[in-house]
Write a protein that binds this DNA or RNA. Structure first.
Length: 293
DNA sequence: CCACAGGGCGGCA
DNA sequence: TGCCGCCCTGTG
């Protein structure tokens, strides 16, 4: 991997096979990246606005600088990890097409708090709605960061800010029955200072048990938070799509936790990566296409 | 009007 | 423990 720092952008060469913006931002792990007219993606991470695109096998980061690349983006995009190697570890005949379909997926290292709230919102919800609710929260209760391409951007609201809101105010953001869960999460994270951020250092089992103490965080949401913000790659979120694809491809069924344990036997320490390729494939409707053939 | 979508809770056996 | 009705909201 080679990084070139230019005046108005940063160019990354040599990882194009393992970095596909569309697949990274649309595989269901994040909700604050949006497609621009020119095919690039713009997103908000903490209090930064970043634009990502790919041209001629070069990854281009705009609206940033070297310092932020080294301090934030390198870790956020998981650039220290060899995805080619991971894919070769989990590759089998059954996964061949699935890994090819989702080529260039990377698992982002996202903020624990934002990820927790985002996936509480995801319960029994659709991606478009989830994005809308997160946008409502940020626009109304986050901090104004600045403009990019004539659009205004806001940070994700802090635990303290959301804790200061009433359940009804949260409902006005179209959170629905999840409002009380968000309120509970904000209370816990505000009250037990540092609690949420320490989970990253703990074992999967311990972190899983802890995160589920938040109302609205069950097995599926908890696994998402651990996988997408706490480097717990044995996490294996099982939703309806994962049930479908694990049954169809591996003939595995049962309760979510049983599916997770059986999957770990197949994929080992790389379960979380395998999950992301499988989920993306299934949720994009590729399961049905195979059925017709 | 009804089904249902990327779950989880609480009540009840 | 395990099952089941219910929950906000938007879309078809």
């Amino acid at each position: 991997m080679k990084v070139n720092y230019k005046k108005d952008k940063i160019e990354i060469e040599g990882i194009v096979e393992e970095f596909e913006p569309k697949h990274i931002f649309e595989c269901g792990q994040c909700f604050r990246w949006n497609l621009e007219k020119d095919g690039s993606y713009t997103g908000v991470v903490k209090n930064r606005i970043l634009n990502v695109s790919k041209k001629n096998d070069i990854i281009i980061l705009k609206n940033t600088n070297k310092e932020d690349f080294l301090n934030i983006w390198f870790d956020y995009f998981d650039l220290n990890r060899n995805y080619k190697k991971i894919k070769s570890e989990i590759l089998d005949d059954k996964l061949k097409d699935i890994l090819e379909f989702g080529k260039g997926i990377r698992i982002l290292n996202q903020d624990e708090w934002e990820t927790t709230i985002s996936f509480i919102i995801s319960a029994n919800n659709r991606i478009l709605m989830i994005k809308r609710v997160i946008d409502n929260l940020s626009r109304n209760y986050g901090k104004y960061i600045g403009m990019y391409n004539d659009k205004k951007y806001y940070s994700f609201p802090s635990p303290e800010k959301l804790n200061s809101l009433s359940e009804n105010e949260l409902r006005l953001m179209k959170t629905g029955f999840r409002a009380k869960y968000i309120k509970n999460a904000a209370e816990m994270v505000t009250r037990k200072e540092g609690w949420l951020y320490k989970l990253k250092e703990q074992s999967y089992d311990c972190a899983f048990e802890e995160i589920k103490k938040i109302k609205g965080v069950g097995d599926k949401v908890g696994n998402c938070v651990l996988l997408f913000s706490m480097n717990k790659y044995e996490a294996f979120p099982v939703d309806i799509w994962m049930k479908r694809i694990m049954e169809k491809v591996y003939n595995i069924n049962g309760k979510p936790d049983e599916i997770r344990k059986k999957s770990e036997k197949i994929f080992g320490p790389y379960s979380g990566f395998a999950q992301q390729y499988l989920f993306y494939y299934a949720s994009q409707g590729k399961l049905k296409e195979n059925k017709r053939k």
